[in-house]
Design a protein around this nucleic acid. Structure first.
Length: 827
RNA sequence: CCGAGUGUGGCGAAACAGGUAGACGCAAGGGACUUAAAAUCCCUUGGGCUUUAUGCCCGUGCCGGUUCGAUUCCGGCCACUCGGACCA
């Protein structure tokens, strides 16, 4: 090895060497296998530190697992389709394919310079027709299973641009682009029945014991299971029965009106002639208003209008008015609620505004007064009053009793609802997977959609004139490409048109982890053999912002693949790691706006990859946000320097390895093995920052030690440096590989096994006992590690600074072996 | 409003099963080497008190509880961060 540590020449040399010998390829028939995956990137302009941290965590884990003799699948690919590329294309009139290809190239170069150990032979890109072909295949397979269907969905529609726009593009109820009026419109779209799996997605969460509890809680919340009761209210003088959902059937006797959403399907059938004009106006207001207030909806004043319809209370036969109400949403429950003003604040506010009756039917179990007469609903559980035969029951008892009653009398039924909605996947975009459907007026007059035959897949994105097609307004881009749009019907061979909308890119990422297993398969997305060999993913790393959408879609897709017989697993991910953000040196989020963006390539130029890698892992626990600090990077660089110098200074001692049976210097060997033990457990619990701290301690110890240059010393120092190289290899692979060429007889990777510590060497013969009196530390004493309580007491007898506290009665003594002794003294 | 998370020196942080709070690093101060600087190495570094000691008091957002002992467990508050939001 060279006298001077020079990462700029050393690191590329090793990177080339690894690439040439294909150091990270795995075979499909390995006996011990692992799968480490980082969420694949959307290849935008330049890689930032957040990416670096994400991939680095995966790389460190993958390298550690390999050192343990596991064949690790560690692939990388590109989430290349999507909105940002299309928006960029609209802006600078360049085809998204071209830009995406350039970005992928630059990302890949940066990844190589960072020394990530990927199997590039398995690289995938979702923009590749050979990839999105399988999106289309899954789409059709799921449609056959009735998991894909056509529905009407509310969208924001700009009347002037004649286009669907996203929520973020609606500003004060107007189109961000043209300032035209935005209305809510019902449009047909393709959707996936993920809600069929809501129950199982929820249940399986219990199995995911290696997921952050935070994510589990978020998913549980997102799925939002609610148990309650449906009540059926007959509407007088009509055939309509309004079904409502409630989680509080115990309050049914306090119901004084019904509220229904402005787009409830039964409105036309129940509104009386007299009220028609005002309900029509209200409905029209609601459709425009909905878009204007995206946030803080709870602040919107309660508004509504009477429909004139009269509903019959299913339990009492009372006549109740039916109101349209702006606080009732159509896509949860049944879109209709039984309003109990005394026990629900929204119902109360509404009842006060429109002077509707308020009837208390629950009283607090401690008989306290309520503020119902002051307009404050009593929403807690309690004891039923004025509730017919249920009076006197507790809320819990009544909930069960009423549910049973309802079922027996056939006036409703117990019900479970979920907050989670089905997954709408249609997008009015170009840069996505074409939906493999054609419409034929002859064979399919209702335009339910005819599947493109499997042998015709993939339906490829057509090449386009960017300026003409990607305008960001009007119909979906593909509808403007006649060569794409016009086709023949697979059934009658007559003229037909293709579906012009594309798929949500969350489809691409819902199953990509499975394609890595078999990326070149032309007959199937992957074979079940390979799935069973590699699944589940051992460790998956990504940002916590994907806690719900992406990670729910993945889990859902895996369940479907399981039902299709593609895999025996139901859950794709064993361990999930959510990494924190890398903020700028000022503590704010890195952003051009603040001018605090630190570019990985600049830092690598100054300090080398290993220093960057060491800093990012050292800065804090991986799930917490960290702040970029040039000073700390420099500190890490200094540490690597010290390590290098230590190895260089002792390089001649390596010859000791050729001598037979040389003893060890016990002090050095103990320190080394104690470090190794802690580092091993720290790797297992993914505590990378403390691994580096431990190694720093050992390097400091070895550097500070005054040497006499005995064979024993040399022997132990050589061992320490060998083990340091192995311990730090996953984090700083370049410098340690170089050190290993001098210190290990063979290359470090070929050792194949992470070193194991010698247990006896990690146990100290003497330890420090803390001496406490009444829980306060009063001193310490060194004693044999197997000392008894009596031994310690004997030692303390000679210590005047301790015994002076022991005057009085010793009530109790607590003795913790190897740690402390505590006297409880009463003066 | 609801939900989740976080809160420890000047700063990033450690303390793994309730047992010496502040490991490791940064910054700062002092010193060595040097004509000088850089680099490197050594020492000090939570706050306070005095009798300068193997000393004492305080200290992990705040208040309380459990315990011989609490950064750690429990209850209540405060602050910040991130999600969700009229979910019946």
């Amino acid at each position: 090895m060279n006298e001077h540590y020079n990462p700029q020449t050393l690191e590329p040399t090793w990177q080339t060497r690894w690439e040439e010998r294909q150091a990270y390829e795995v075979s499909d028939d390995a006996s011990s296998t692992g799968y480490v995956l980082e969420m694949f990137p959307y290849p935008s302009g330049a890689m930032h530190m957040g990416h670096v941290r994400n991939y680095l965590i995966g790389d460190v884990i993958a390298r550690y697992m390999r050192l343990q003799g596991t064949e690790v699948l560690h692939p990388m690919g590109w989430d290349a389709l999507g909105l940002p590329a299309e928006n960029a294309a609209i802006k600078d009139k360049q085809h998204p394919e071209k830009r995406t290809a350039e970005n992928i190239k630059s990302f890949k170069n940066e990844m190589k310079r960072l020394g990530f150990s990927y199997q590039w032979s398995r690289e995938i890109s979702t923009a590749d027709p050979n990839y999105y072909k399988w999106n289309q295949w899954f789409f059709l397979k799921m449609r056959e299973r009735d998991l894909v269907y056509r529905r009407k969905a509310s969208v924001n529609w700009c009347n002037d641009c004649h286009t669907v726009i996203a929520n973020e593009q609606v500003v004060d109820g107007c189109c961000e682009r043209c300032n035209g009026t935005v209305i809510v419109r019902q449009m047909p779209e393709w959707a996936i029945r993920i809600t069929n799996y809501a129950e199982r997605l929820l249940e399986n969460l219990d199995q995911l014991i290696h997921w952050p509890t935070e994510v589990i809680k978020k998913q549980r919340n997102w799925i939002g299971k609610n148990e309650g009761v449906f009540f059926d209210f007959k509407v007088m003088n009509t055939d309509v029965t309004l079904r409502v959902f409630t989680t509080r059937p115990d309050t049914i006797f306090g119901c004084s009106y019904l509220g229904i959403s402005a787009d409830h399907p039964d409105i036309a059938a129940i509104v009386t002639e007299k009220h028609k004009q005002q309900t029509d106006r209200f409905i029209k207001d609601q459709t425009t208003q909905k878009t204007t207030r995206q946030h803080d909806r709870s602040d919107i004043p309660k508004e509504g209008v009477n429909t004139g319809a009269i509903a019959i209370h299913p339990m009492t036969g009372e006549k109740l008015p039916v109101w349209l109400a702006n606080f009732v949403v159509s896509d949860y429950g049944t879109g209709a609620v039984m309003s109990v003003p005394a026990h629900d604040q929204r119902d109360m506010d509404f009842a006060q505004t429109y002077d509707l009756p308020i009837k208390a039917v629950i009283k607090p179990s401690d008989n306290q007064d309520t503020d119902i007469h002051n307009g404050v609903a009593f929403i807690d559980e309690g004891i039923l009053v004025d509730s017919d035969s249920f009076t006197g029951l507790t809320s819990k008892q009544a909930t069960i009793a009423i549910a049973q009653h309802v079922q027996k009398q056939n006036i409703g039924e117990p019900a479970v609802t979920f907050r989670q909605r089905d997954w709408g996947i249609s997008r009015q975009r170009y840069w996505g997977t074409p939906i493999p459907i054609v419409y034929c007026d002859q064979c399919d007059p209702n335009h339910e959609g005819i599947a493109v035959p499997y042998e015709d897949l993939p339906v490829k994105l057509p090449d386009i004139d960017v300026e003409q097609v990607l305008t960001g307004r009007g119909e979906p881009p593909l509808a403007k490409v006649s060569s794409f749009l016009n086709t023949t019907c697979p059934l009658c061979k007559g003229p037909a048109t293709r579906e012009a909308e594309t798929m949500d890119t969350f489809v691409d990422s819902a199953w990509y982890f499975a394609r890595y297993l078999d990326p070149h398969n032309n007959d199937l997305p992957f074979t079940s053999d390979k799935a069973n060999q590699w699944f589940p993913i051992d460790v998956y790393i990504g940002g916590p912002e994907h806690s719900t959408m992406h990670l729910l879609y993945c889990r859902f897709w895996m369940m479907v693949m399981n039902e299709m017989g593609l895999t025996t697993h139901q859950e794709p991910i064993k361990t999930l790691i959510t990494q924190g953000i890398v903020n700028g040196p000022d503590g704010r989020k890195m952003s051009k706006r603040w001018g605090n963006v630190v570019s990985p390539s600049d830092i690598i130029k100054d300090y080398g990859t290993d220093a960057v890698r060491t800093f990012v892992m050292f800065a804090g626990p991986m799930d917490k946000d960290i702040k970029w600090s040039n000073e700390q990077v420099e500190g890490c660089h200094r540490f690597l320097h010290r390590l290098w110098r230590l190895a260089y200074n002792h390089r001649d001692s390596v010859s000791i390895l050729s001598k037979q049976s040389v003893d060890h210097d016990l002090e050095i060997q103990r320190e080394t093995h104690k470090t190794l033990k802690r580092v091993t457990t720290d790797f297992e619990r993914h505590s990378f920052n403390t691994i580096i701290a431990r190694c720093m301690e050992l390097v400091n110890f070895l550097t500070a030690r005054k040497l006499t240059h005995t064979d024993q010393e040399k022997n132990s120092i050589v061992e320490a440096i060998q083990l340091l190289a192995a311990m730090l290899f996953p984090i700083a692979p370049h410098i340690t590989s170089e050190i290993a060429t001098t210190y290990c007889s063979e290359h470090l990777l070929d050792l194949g096994k992470f070193p194991t510590y010698i247990q006896e060497l990690t146990v100290d013969k003497h330890v420090n006992y803390t001496i406490q009196i009444n829980g306060k530390r009063r001193g310490q004493v060194t004693a044999a590690s197997d000392a008894t309580e009596e031994d310690i007491k004997t030692l303390i007898n000679d210590m005047s600074q301790i015994t002076r506290y022991l005057e009085g009665t010793i009530i109790k003594t607590i003795f913790v072996p190897k740690k402390l002794i505590n006297f409880v003294v009463k003066p």
